[in-house]
Simulated assay, not measured.
Amino acid sequence: MANGLTYMRNTSTPEATKQLASTLAPYLRPGDVVLLNGDLGAGKTQFVQGVAAALGVRAPVTSPTFNILLEYAEGRLPLYHFDLYRLDEPAQLDDIDYFGVIDGDGASFVEWAEKFPDDMPYDYLEITITADERGTRRIVAHSYGSRSRQLLCVWANDSKARLGKIQL
């Protein structure tokens, strides 16, 4: 996690995770890419649900595991939710127009991006969610690139986000 900013926050409920995510939504712009790392059940989809609600998405936001990509166009800007878990080869990213979508007109949230590290964009915000046995989630956000650094800075300065800077 070199060359970027890192912030974190703990949440104790799914609602608190969604609330934190909702504070990111006002700062998202077309072309923003957010990678979501974490084990099954860590809260990645809950995070996307919080962003989607704050963007004005009324449709139910579910995990795109079996669809690979779910699109939500009704909010302030289009939201693209990828789940790369079921993909096996980098060539499959072309099959789903991954590169066209992330460079497009909305914000993209990508679960299981760590499967294809060489195929991620140059500039992205990485969010890692870990949950302990009590259900407390540790949410760590790290910026890679100038736009994601700017995004993380404004998000961290939002008093509702309550993110704390950490040194690595």
Rank of each mutant, 00 (worst) to 15 (best):
L36Q: 10
T65C: 05
V34K: 05
L93H: 01
R58D: 14
A2M: 15
R58L: 14
L70I: 09
H81R: 08
P26L: 06
T13N: 12
L77V: 03
D39N: 15
Y72M: 04
I96M: 00
T65Y: 08
S22D: 10
A25V: 10
G56D: 11
L69P: 04
D39V: 09
A42V: 02
D88E: 14
G75D: 05
G104M: 04
Y80D: 03
L93F: 03
L79K: 02
K44V: 03
L36C: 08
L28Y: 11
L87P: 03
V57P: 06
D88G: 13
L28A: 08
I102C: 01
T17S: 13
N3H: 15
L35P: 00
S63L: 07
G104C: 02
L79G: 01
Y85F: 07
G104D: 05
L70F: 06
T11I: 06
L24C: 11
G31A: 10
F66A: 08
A54P: 04
Y7D: 07
K44G: 01
Y80Q: 05
G31S: 13
D105S: 10
P64R: 09
T11R: 03
E15M: 14
Y27T: 07
Y80C: 05
E89G: 00
P78T: 07
D83E: 04
V101W: 00
V48L: 03
K44N: 03
S12M: 13
M1T: 10
L70A: 14
L84N: 02
L40Y: 12
A91V: 14
E74T: 09
L69W: 03
L87H: 03
L40W: 10
R29A: 15
G50E: 07
G56W: 11
V34Y: 05
I96R: 00
I96K: 00
T17M: 13
T17F: 11
A25F: 07
E15S: 15
G75M: 04
P64E: 06
H81V: 04
T45M: 03
L69I: 14
L20A: 07
A107M: 01
T23R: 13
Q46L: 15
L55M: 12
N67L: 15
F66W: 13
T11G: 04
L28D: 08
D39T: 13
F47W: 06
D95N: 07
Q49A: 05
R76H: 00
F99I: 00
S12V: 12
A73M: 12
V57M: 09
S12R: 15
L36I: 10
Y98M: 02
L20N: 04
P64K: 08
A73G: 06
D105H: 04
H81L: 09
A53G: 06
T45H: 06
L5P: 07
V101E: 01
G106N: 02
H81E: 08
